[in-house]
Design a protein around this nucleic acid. Structure first.
Length: 298
DNA sequence: CCTAACCCCTGCTTGC
DNA sequence: TGCAAGCAGGGGTTAG
């Protein structure tokens, strides 16, 4: 489940590989994924044609990230917005043999693509970009220009970027104290902090020594400071390691991110707490599987 | 104003 | 061993 560090890692890989390249051909195998919300089957064919026509021949100029969204910009001003949701992934394969780019040899994948989970294929100048998505919750949205992108205002409900200066301990304190519910749903609320998901919410809560189920408005100033510092420390570390590869998340070259091996609680229910050795407890908070240490987290 | 439930979808896990 | 039901999960939407 790609969260901010995974999407950011992917963004960096995409930036390195595809900027400057042109889209030669597009094959949309699952029109639903490029049809936006409220899609009716009848509208899908038209949306697919619009998507394909609109982006064929376009040259990539930038790859940006907002929360867990990827924003591809083109020389013409056109825009492609992608959300990977649960299982979306991009894989890029350079045509021909491995060659050195940016000082690193490109890893040639062993897997065969396209496969049954490949829903959109972008043939680029020098290679092929595959969009795979097992659960098909993800989507790719095409905007003909900046104006239409802004008009749709897809990011209207998003809160601050946790790695931006706007995300201060004070901001977090106020947000937490404005809520009556548990801590974890607040951390995962994209309208408050944009980009945290199940993994990093649990990891941050552990690092701060706070139970995910604690009422958000009972956190002290000191606790919020620790939580804020934990988020500011964990996310860059995870990005540096390429994110957490659990389930289907892979980097652009299909390699795995290395942050999963540093998880202290996520996916470790029943295993020993790395601090006190007590078995980690698994509960549900806000409808999400949650793991924490009953002794180290208060 | 909030929270809980539902939904989208497939693959893995569990239980019989 | 096989199969069906259950579950997971981001996040938008709907119901309560």
């Amino acid at each position: 489940m790609p969260e901010l560090p995974e999407v950011e890692s992917l963004r960096r890989g995409l930036e390195k590989r595809i900027i400057g390249q042109k889209i030669r051909r597009i094959e949309v195998r699952k029109p639903k994924l490029v049809s936006g919300k409220g899609n009716v089957r009848a509208a899908s064919a038209a949306k697919k044609a619009r998507f394909t026509r609109g982006l064929t021949g376009q040259r990539f100029t930038a790859v940006e990230r907002r929360a867990k969204n990827l924003i591809f910009r083109f020389a013409s001003g056109k825009i492609l917005l992608v959300h990977l949701k649960m299982s979306g992934q991009f894989v890029y394969k350079e045509r021909g043999r491995a060659k050195v780019m940016g000082g690193h040899p490109i890893k040639i994948s062993e897997s065969e693509l396209p496969n049954k989970h490949t829903h959109v294929i972008f043939e680029l100048s020098r290679g092929t970009l595959f969009y795979n998505d097992t659960r098909m919750f993800g989507y790719l949205l095409y905007y003909p220009d900046q104006a239409s992108f802004e008009k749709e205002n897809h990011f209207a409900a998003l809160g601050v970027e946790p790695l931006s200066p706007a995300f201060t301990a004070d901001y977090l304190y106020k947000a937490l104290h404005a809520k009556k519910g548990a801590l974890k749903p607040v951390l995962m609320n994209q309208g408050i902090v944009a980009g945290l998901g199940n993994i990093y919410a649990d990891e941050a809560a552990f690092a701060a020594g706070i139970r995910p189920g604690r009422k958000a408005n009972t956190l002290t100033r000191a606790e919020v400071l620790k939580l804020h510092a934990a988020i500011k420390k964990i996310l860059p570390r995870a990005i540096r390691l390429g994110g957490s590869s659990v389930i289907s998340y892979r980097l652009l070259d299909e390699s795995r991110g290395n942050y999963a091996r540093e998880h202290k609680v996520y996916n470790r229910a029943g295993e020993e707490c790395l601090i006190c050795a007590l078995p980690l407890k698994k509960i549900t908070v806000g409808g999400r599987t949650t793991v924490y240490c009953q002794r180290c987290q208060r």
